[in-house]
């Protein structure tokens, strides 16, 4: 078959597929809608989880220590302590948060400005924030904590790994669950398209028998059904992208407000181009795969 002939065959198959889809628009629309909802579910969940990922700033998820220094320690001693810490192994960063800076940060937190203003003098200590290269709860972390607590310049040491670490683990678990959900949904879509295509092939049994009898190849007979699956999948995918976009808008607004509370104002929470393209791509490919599995031509009937 020539290139022109091949293109013509595909155009005709696509037209035939559209004709078949329009022959029963309600049934096929419902099929697209089901596919769209199935595809959108993991999509929206993924976008929401990514929002929570943004919520956890890197420094909050890195294991570390907050070293609260005694009020009467001179600035030179404070700097010496920080330098001493930085010189040790397994230390990622050391940041000195002066008491004035701490008070300023505290006053900016919602609702605490008036409370801070009520103090005659700054009650906060200087703090050295130490980020570690080791894993949370490591021997090194515990040893360093004990060693610092024995230092006369130190009031107390807080280990920064609890909540953020749990949230990180929960987030990873959530992402895995979404992945499993997505895989199950993808398999279900293939099954849905396979079933729908099989019904369509059975309905067209008389026509397919004729096509076979007059010398149509199996490829010719199957092609419109594969196009049907592809078109349905693409339509379902486009609808799913719309649902993901709407879902991300609904989830994005409260997430953005939450981020603002954590000082992450301006962070973008929502669906990006890839989030919208993936359902379309997945729907199209899965539609084609499902239809290809189902579009076997029945044997010729002679009556």
């Amino acid at each position: 078959m020539s290139l022109h002939g091949g293109a013509q065959a595909h155009i005709e198959a696509a037209r035939d597929a559209i004709r078949r889809l329009l022959h029963d628009p309600i049934r096929h629309s419902v099929g697209c809608l089901v596919m769209a909802l199935m595809l959108a579910l993991p999509g929206v969940a993924w976008v929401a989880l990514r929002g929570f990922d943004v919520l956890l700033p890197v420094e909050a998820t890195t294991p570390g220590l907050s070293v609260f220094v005694r009020q009467d320690v001179a600035e030179a001693d404070l700097t010496a302590l920080a330098d001493n810490l930085l010189a040790r192994d397994n230390i990622l960063t050391v940041e000195v948060v002066g008491r004035d800076k701490g008070l300023e940060a505290l006053s900016q937190l919602a609702g605490l400005g008036d409370l801070v203003g009520a103090f005659d003098e700054n009650p906060l200590p200087d703090v050295i924030r130490v980020a570690l290269k080791t894993t949370p709860g490591s021997e090194f972390m515990r040893g360093l904590s004990v060693s610092l607590e024995g230092d006369p310049r130190v009031e107390f040491v807080r280990v920064d790994q609890g909540l953020s670490n749990e949230m990180r683990n929960a987030l990873v678990l959530g992402q895995r669950l979404v992945l499993v959900l997505a895989l199950m949904v993808l398999a279900a879509i293939v099954l849905v398209v396979t079933g729908a295509t099989r019904i369509e092939v059975t309905r067209a049994r008389a026509e397919l028998s004729l096509v076979d009898l007059v010398g149509g190849t199996e490829r010719y007979a199957r092609r419109p059904f594969i196009y049907m699956g592809v078109l349905q999948g693409a339509a379902g995918g486009c609808l799913a992208a719309l649902f993901v976009w709407i879902g991300s808008l609904l989830v994005g607004a409260p997430l953005s407000r939450l981020l603002t509370l954590y000082g992450e104002s301006g962070a973008i929470v929502g669906a990006n181009a890839l989030d919208l393209a993936l359902p379309v791509l997945a729907g199209t490919v899965l539609g084609g795969v499902g239809a290809r599995i189902a579009a076997r031509v029945p044997s010729v009937a002679w009556t």
Partner: peptide
Amino acid sequence: PMFRRKVGVVFQDPQLL
């Protein structure tokens, strides 16, 4: 399929679509 394109078949019931 090439062979069947050289044959025409008429049925008792014409089996029109």
